[in-house]
């Protein structure tokens, strides 16, 4: 139910990663962490302080970091690599493809500062293509948690899964809405059950989708809201359950319209249950400098955009 999800304050998803990694370090002696000169940004200091021998500073050499992580995985370690999402994917795509994905190495690629909400650094750093790149790789698990608690839980949970994982999170302080819970890879969270329109959101935009759902419900529109933290493997059953009830869907993501959650959902629906769909996503453009809130509005990812998309898709039923 929507009223179960109340912001308990703003905290960054990257802080959730840092806390999760620190906790995991105490639980699992095989976990090692690598970083390419962004320890403070990735919030890795607590893990490093507690486990200095299990931290590897690689310097500004992301390609080397991915290969080293693959090598550590060969020896039975569970390496967590940390750098910005841009440098975790596009910059090292071939290294991930050959040395990690094709070689099926147990590497956790942890990527911060994803999307527009990176803010002022601008488009060079605001990667909006990473979900697409990573979900195309055979065997890669792709996770984009929505808040501090979900990121922390996901960081801990992925150590129990053998295989490469792409964990995407971000920079800004953001409403913390999820309870502390045990994260299940590939299991969507049904935040609200409804009958008029399905809204499926991932990452930071779960918050905007939640706000939009509240506004829509206030107008008498019944919303089925799904929090899809795992984009691959996708919870097809949850999506089909929801859309079969509402017969239309809006997907929300801090990503390009091409290749991300929306396309993954459209793929499922096209094969099983074709239904009108609207995308809340960046419309094939690069970002720019600005505050996170300004950028979400300018690029059509704000709460009002989710509401408008829902009304539009309802009209197409």
């Amino acid at each position: 139910m929507l009223q179960d999800y109340i912001s308990t304050g703003k905290k960054a998803t990257r802080d959730g990663f840092g806390e999760g990694l620190h906790e995991l370090g105490k639980q699992n002696p095989n976990v090692v962490a690598l970083c390419a000169d962004l320890v403070a940004s990735l919030k890795m200091a607590d893990f490093i302080k507690a486990n200095p021998e299990r931290f590897i500073q690689v310097g500004i050499a992301e390609a080397n970091m991915m290969g080293i992580a693959a090598g550590l995985a060969i020896g039975g370690k569970i390496p967590y690599t940390g750098t910005f999402a841009n440098f975790s994917t596009g910059r090292v795509y071939d290294q991930i493809r050959q040395s990690i994905a094709y070689s099926h190495k147990n590497v956790k690629i942890c990527a911060s500062h994803a999307g527009l909400t990176l803010g002022e650094d601008g488009a060079t750093h605001q990667i909006l293509e990473d979900i697409g790149m990573m979900r195309m790789l055979p065997g890669m698990t792709v996770i984009n948690p929505c808040d501090f608690n979900q990121t922390k839980a996901a960081t801990i949970a992925i150590a129990e899964h053998y295989g490469p994982v792409y964990l995407r999170f971000g920079r800004p302080n953001w409403p913390n809405i999820m309870p502390e819970y045990k994260f299940e890879i590939g299991k969507a969270i049904h935040m609200n059950e409804g009958s008029d329109v399905t809204i499926i959101a991932t990452g930071h935009l779960v918050w905007n989708a939640l706000e939009a759902a509240r506004a829509l419900e206030a107008e008498g529109i019944s919303v089925y809201l799904l929090n899809i933290h795992t984009i691959k493997p996708l919870d097809e059953e949850a999506i089909l359950d929801a859309v079969s009830k509402t017969k239309c869907v809006v997907t929300c993501e801090e990503h390009q319209i091409n290749g991300g959650l929306g396309d993954a959902v459209a793929n499922v629906l096209a094969r099983n249950f074709p239904a009108p769909q609207e995308y809340v996503a960046v419309k094939d453009s690069f970002g720019e400098s600005g505050t996170p809130d300004q950028l979400l509005v300018k690029y059509g990812l704000g709460t009002d955009d989710v509401i408008a998309a829902a009304k539009k898709v309802l009209s197409r039923k």
Binding site: R54, G67, A70, G71, L72, I74, G75, K77, P79, Q95
Partner: peptide, 17 residues
């Protein structure tokens, strides 16, 4: 260009172990 990095990872692991 990738093999040395992988070898380094294994070498680090051996040191750790």
């Amino acid at each position: 260009g990738q093999g040395m990095s992988v070898a380094i990872g294994v070498a680090l692991g051996k040191k750790l172990d």
